[in-house]
Amino acid sequence: MRMIVDAVDWISRAAAYVAAAILVFMVGHILLEIVLRNLFDTSTFVTAEFVGYGVAAMTYLGLAFSLRTGALIRVNMLLVRLHGPARRAAEMLCVAMTLALTVFLGWYFWRQLARDYTRGTVSYSIAEVPVWIPEGLVFAGIALFGLQLFAYLVRLGLGDPPIAEDVGGE
């Protein structure tokens, strides 16, 4: 069990590195567009489109890692007042609810993704990007987030303490 849980952590971290790479790519793409427009009177023709994909992919791919490292905020009115087993039970309830939500979102988004894949839907820009590619990245992020929630549930069951909110001061 531990091994599976640790593997999910490892994948979450890897996905966050991908999200970070996407952020760098977005900056680079915009800089390229600026250079092309100002110096060469041309355009990549796809900046807004690709950067849009980047934001979506980055947001969802980084979700699992953000959850794991305590960066996703919550309204801590109830949780801070609870201790011991009550705290653990409340935490498990939150995780279970969020996991149910994630399964719901994931299932319906999967149907959208599958339809776009079989239909061969492409974007209407000059690049004609198959939309299952950016949608697939988003789905991967949602699926991984679900896995991470499941792993967290397991960890709570094994007696690990709840994730502490981390303000990222490092």
Partner: peptide, 17 residues
């Protein structure tokens, strides 16, 4: 460079989600 990037990903994920 890497730390700032990962920090940015975490905060952006939180805000954008």
């Amino acid at each position: 460079f890497v730390d700032s990037l990962m920090g940015a990903v975490r905060v952006s994920c939180m805000v954008c989600s």
